[in-house]
Design a protein around this nucleic acid. Structure first.
Lengths: 194, 194
DNA sequence: CGAAAATTTGACATGACTCAACTGGAGTGG
DNA sequence: CCACTCCAGTTGAGTCATGTCAAATTTTCG
């Protein structure tokens, strides 16, 4: 069963009985997306949580000037989507688009709510996941203040080597808040130093 | 009882029986801090969650160059502390220091864990709080990319008018990632336009 | 091979920082 | 009540980091 990486992931965070895990799996569906397809589009209400079984996904938003800003990348064993839209059941600000053909485990929003009531450990799972996501988000804010451009890029490469290898450079620039030209110059400076 | 604002706050997020609320309150202590005192110091392990009943608190960290960066402000009905330290029970990166004499509702870390097991709705409370905090954190990242300095400052003032009035300008500059001089220039530009 | 997309490079412009000087208000002590 | 000090805030000159725009080069992929 190809939800195995999903159940493995869950087991690393909380301990569930076999029955509980079965209930979760029974509410989870697997879905394939082609490269370029959207898991979520800005303006739609996000009605699912999505766990990446395989593939690479970018979450981005478009500002008033039409510029794309990448908020997050997701690969295997990460979540993707717009939590704000999911929580408030309001139109999403973000898009989630596949950069590769991808396979995603999906639990519909309503099922998630039911599972929260039915399986307290399921709610714990999401409490912990969200705590980790929040801590990472705070760290990103700090680094945006206190690191130089070069440090930010090197940090990114060491922290997310798998992403660095899979996504084009101009998207990394967008994630870091740089122009593609500027990232290119940062890179050439790093190369010159070696 | 002066934990009233705390129980009111909780009731707005989750519905609890009177007994459950009593258990939570029984595990909560009230503590006063004087202006300048620390609720948490970087390097110490954060062993409590802290809800602000009264006062104003800054959460900041000091980078390698000795510069202070304010990560968050907290006033009445907000939480304060370093969630990363709490979760991992590792030394905190952040300091929480009172900018005014303050009163805080405290639940020790161990009690929080016990309450998670005992009262599923308590865990739901923290799932929801953390979700909101994460969404706000993501939004701050986006705004740091897509707003101009002037827009960031105006946004801050409209979003947190109470903080704007209570906190010195150089701390707002630190929160926004500006130098104090630069914020002063942004302000004079805004005034000139009116 | 050829076309489109991604990346690099260079010249120039602008935003934000640094440093230093100045202003103004809030204590404080004589 | 004045003089002094201290600190936050302002202002200005110069600098550095990053962005913009355009062109050249490299890579990707049909």
């Amino acid at each position: 069963m190809s939800l195995e990486s999903f159940t493995n992931y869950i087991s690393k965070i909380v301990s569930l009985s076999a029955e509980e895990m079965e209930v979760i799996v029974a509410n989870t569906t697997e879905r394939k997306y082609l490269k370029g397809q959207y898991i979520l589009q800005a303006g739609d209400v996000n009605n699912k949580v999505a766990f990446i079984l395989q593939g690479c996904i970018k979450t981005f938003y478009i500002d008033e000037d039409g510029n794309e800003h990448i908020v997050a990348f997701g690969i295997e064993d990460w979540w993707t989507g717009d939590l704000g839209s999911l929580m408030a059941q309001k139109p999403a600000d973000y898009n989630s688009q596949c950069l590769e053909n991808s396979v995603v485990a999906i639990i519909p929003y309503k099922k998630v709510q039911e599972l929260y009531d039915e399986i307290p450990m399921f709610e714990r799972l999401f409490r912990i996941i969200t705590e980790k996501a929040f801590v990472a988000s705070q760290r990103r804010i700090i680094e945006s203040f206190s690191l130089t451009a070069k440090e930010k890029y090197l940090q990114f490469r060491t922290r997310y080597p798998k992403i660095d290898q899979r996504v084009p450079q101009y998207m990394i620039a967008s994630y870091l808040g740089f122009t593609p030209e500027f990232l290119s110059k940062v890179r050439s400076q790093i190369i010159a130093e070696q």
